[in-house]
Write a protein that binds this DNA or RNA. Structure first.
Lengths: 319, 319
DNA sequence: CTGTTAGCGCTTTCAT
DNA sequence: ATGAAAGCGCTAACAG
């Protein structure tokens, strides 16, 4: 019994001969170790929980793949839960994940509220926030600087001489994709000495159609924008097509830029200029950080901000 | 002890008063049930394993969402493993999933080989194949008829009077997306009395770029095709852009049709005509089927083939 | 309706 | 280097 456990767990204190015998018996009997029993006895499940807004969203799916690849590399499995950025659902899945005795938790969600903090505190396993902002700064996290990414995108527009630049934003309730990018937009205008104009920002829902809708509104304006900053690729592509469908040209008439740089950015004509957000890496790095935390290795910086960069393609005039 | 177990599991044999007392104690102590211990004792983990080719692929991500939604509805969690349609990886994750004592398994992969069957046989939990073909027909499965979907797509081209229709295929080693769709293409030609022409099919890798590459090849042909059937949306969009980049028009010069009808199909100009493959439903239905199997309910048809349909948009001439 | 008692299949001391 | 024995935290008879 104990010896079998030793060989299965690669404990060196087994004579090679008996080790071999055990392996043979395992083979012959078709023995399969019970990971649940092992988990109960060892208090380790080698599985981590990941709460994600929506796996069918290309951006998050990319993060998930980064997570899973690294998890796999360190022999962890992942329990995946969609929570749609809904607080209640998030809290609920965090708790069931904790009940399942995951060795760690990767949280990708909307705002991190007091209730979230409460739930996190009751966990006695490490947690890292992934592509999610943490105002309090108490929980390890890995993300990009969304405000700055937006700032850089808008600034690149301004640098091309645009002065009327509109924004298609996500909901301002969303701290990272929504609020932060909106703030970056405002700061870029402000820095350039351009007055903020309320009529130039539309709130979308991250979907293609809402990009098209926003653009239709902008085109109807008395003094239409010459450039549009979209909070995400998908809305940007919707915007490009909206502009084209209205008989205008991108970027000749209206330039479009976004933040994300998903694979989709190259799948449109003109190809989309965007500030790249390294989604796969965000997933991979956060999982790597979590493995360190789970092994109780001490990490120097538990709040990592990955770099973003402008990827110039053809949707902005003059670049 | 036992009474606590009863209230936590909603066993009716508890006096309301004691039930209340237990809840209070749970609250006060911050007691959290240990699902691992519960799993060991009850031999049920309320988690199902899902092996998927690649979660970052939009098509599979959509299936995954369908799976997770239904799983959630029935209070199951899912352990997600990418296996990239690699046999070895698939076998490996099937085994670790089984070690983790999942209550059921959803398998989405490449070919189902003898080795897979072997692994499945050792499982004493139900398994359903999801968006994966099963030649032997022994394992419950839910999918569309890929051969027929391809046939219908190509036939719709033929019905518009096209006679030189090319195909951008996936690898023929892939039973569903590759081989089956290729067979459907051939059968449609044959039925219409059109000779199969080897030079008119290119093997892609499902990616956008391979669609573009294939089209560049087709355009260079002495007698170029007037229509292209792509095995997937993404390659079709690559094809459309390749055609446009070459100064030709879709569908005036070359028509394009595909199978999938992912959200992407509407995100291109002209919008892509495609045979719709109901990915979300495939996931949802297969998970639903699995729940029935796990509850040992008897199911009438354990091999379900979901319907597909032609969604006409603007990429085919004359429709 | 509630408490007692065995396990579930492992890991982990502790002996040997 | 190996075996014996005691749990891990729960569920599931079984009494009462």
């Amino acid at each position: 019994m104990a010896t079998v456990s030793r060989v299965v767990n690669n404990n060196p204190n087994v004579k090679p001969a008996t080790r071999k015998k055990v392996y043979e018996a395992i083979e012959r009997l078709g023995y399969r170790p019970n990971a649940v029993a092992r988990g109960l006895a060892s208090k380790k499940t080698t599985t981590v929980g990941v709460v994600i807004p929506d796996i069918s969203n290309a951006i998050f799916a990319e993060v998930a793949r980064g997570i899973e690849d690294i998890a796999n590399m360190y022999h962890y499995n992942i329990i995946l839960c969609n929570a749609d950025k809904k607080k209640d659902k998030e809290i609920r899945v965090i708790n069931t994940l904790l009940e399942k005795q995951v060795d760690g938790l990767l949280f990708m969600g909307g705002a991190v509220t007091e209730e979230h903090m409460q739930a996190f505190k009751t966990a006695n396993v490490p947690i890292v926030l992934c592509a999610t902002s943490d105002e309090s700064g108490q929980i390890p996290s890995v993300d990009i600087n969304h405000e700055e990414a937006a700032y850089d995108a808008v600034k690149s527009l301004l640098d091309q001489g645009h002065t009327r630049v509109a924004m298609i934003s996500g909901t301002l309730q969303d701290p990272s994709l929504g609020y932060a990018r909106y703030q970056g937009y405002k700061r870029a205008l402000e820095t350039a000495g351009i007055a903020y104009d309320d009529t130039l920002v539309r709130i979308g829902n991250y979907r293609y159609e809402s990009g098209t809708d926003a653009v239709n509104y902008f085109i109807g304006l008395d003094s239409r924008p010459t450039a549009i900053f979209s909070a995400t690729d998908e809305m940007a592509i919707g915007a490009i097509h909206g502009i084209q469908d209205a008989g205008l040209k991108v970027p000749a008439d209206i330039s479009v830029i976004s933040v994300d740089n998903s694979r989709m950015a190259s799948m449109v004509r003109p190809q989309l200029t965007a500030v790249a957000q390294p989604m796969y890496d965000i997933g991979a790095v956060s999982m790597r950080l979590l493995t360190k935390l789970m092994k109780k290795e001490n990490v120097d910086h538990s709040k990592v901000v990955l770099p973003h960069e402008l990827v110039v393609r053809q949707s902005v005039r003059g670049q």
